[in-house]
Amino acid sequence: MAVNSELHRRHIIEDNYCQRCREDVETVTHAIFKCPTVRSVWENSSFWEEVQQIGEESFEVFKRVTEHYSHHDVYTFSALAWAMWTSRNKALFENSPHDPILLATGFSKYVSDFQVYSAKVFGGRRGNGGISNSTWKKPPAGTLKINVDAATFDDAVGLGVVARNSHGDIVFTGARRWRGRWDSCIAEAAAIHFGVELAIRFGYRDVWCESDALNVVQKIQQKQLGYNYVFLFISSIISLSSSFSSFICSHVKRGGNTVAHFLARTVPPEANEIVNFEQFPESIITLAEMDIG
């Protein structure tokens, strides 16, 4: 994309700074996500947490969104990103005063209108293959519900698991940290595998596993096989799940998976595995209460 950093690298222009804010070099990441002129749009969206984690490689965030969010959310995120690029071009080339928030709202409405139209024309056949919950839901009586998540760091991967009963009470939490650089899809599959391992270890028979990694959940639901490393975890999860009397694997949006997300991101660097059955930290209890919809 023809941002100033790229044009400067090609010796087309002399100044690589953002012409709108003059505070930083204009990269794709800066133009779409980090420039103060567009920041308020992302702050008021459901994607702010993801945007805050963006490094210099802007397309990594698109990968995370497609893995953790529903198709509807992916369309909305893409519309907002395109709206911010349009906002940039309007300011630079059309000298057109406008409100980025109103522009983003208009783009989002186009996406929403198209999805309504698409559902009528195609009969909703473009769904994601299952219902994604926005909030945490209690499992049936006698079923253990385990929520899992993964977090990737520069040189390690954190895995988080929280298990709750039909009353919403925490039964146990688990956290594991492995050294190495992992693809986020593999890390999410490893988190589900960790959760299933713990459920088997502690003798549970009826298990509902929930993750915010939509593509991994779909692979498990569809019992997909393949040669990528992620399928080593997928095939093992499918095999292990046969030992349960009942097993469900479903997708939940990030907002309904906050406890597992917190555990994955805060596992101590020196820890290999931590499992806790009592005296849960106040931060975990508070997040668990907020999780419940």
Rank of each mutant, 00 (worst) to 15 (best):
R164F: 04
F77C: 13
R20A: 04
D183I: 08
G129L: 07
E14P: 00
H71W: 13
N133D: 10
K63Q: 14
G142Q: 01
R22P: 02
W42D: 01
E56H: 12
G124A: 06
P269D: 06
N272A: 09
G168D: 12
F122Y: 14
E49Q: 12
T152P: 00
Y110P: 01
R39C: 13
K63W: 07
F247H: 13
A119V: 02
P36R: 05
R164L: 05
T105C: 14
G55H: 04
N4E: 09
T152K: 00
S118F: 13
I101Y: 08
I200P: 03
N4C: 13
Y227V: 15
N128T: 14
E49C: 03
H71F: 14
S132R: 10
A81F: 01
S239W: 01
V41W: 02
F202Y: 15
V65N: 01
H8R: 13
A199F: 00
G256M: 00
K90P: 00
F280W: 08
G293F: 09
S166Q: 05
A151D: 01
W48E: 13
L159G: 09
F172Q: 12
E270Q: 09
V217G: 07
I234D: 00
T135A: 08
L144I: 05
A31E: 04
V171E: 15
D291C: 11
P269I: 08
N276F: 04
K145N: 11
T173C: 10
D24T: 06
I284R: 05
F153H: 14
G203M: 15
S245N: 15
V207S: 06
H72L: 14
S241M: 13
T76H: 06
F233T: 04
Y117V: 10
G195V: 01
D113Y: 06
H30G: 03
S45G: 11
T66N: 05
D183A: 12
R205V: 04
S40Q: 15
R265N: 13
S184P: 12
G255M: 09
P268K: 10
L214A: 09
A91F: 06
E26Y: 05
Y69S: 09
W208Y: 10
Q115P: 00
E50V: 02
N272D: 13
M290W: 03
I131H: 15
F107L: 11
P100W: 13
A156R: 04
F280M: 12
N4Q: 11
L225R: 14
Y17F: 15
A91I: 02
T266P: 10
M84L: 10
Q19I: 01
F172P: 05
K34T: 01
S241Q: 08
P140E: 08
N257E: 02
A189D: 09
Y204D: 03
T37Q: 11
L103N: 07
D291N: 14
W85N: 06
G158F: 04
I170Q: 06
G180I: 08
V38Q: 03
E26Q: 11
G123F: 06
G226L: 09
A141V: 07
V41N: 03
E60S: 11
A190C: 12
K34C: 06
V161Y: 00
E14R: 02
Y229L: 14
A213W: 04
H261G: 01
A79H: 02
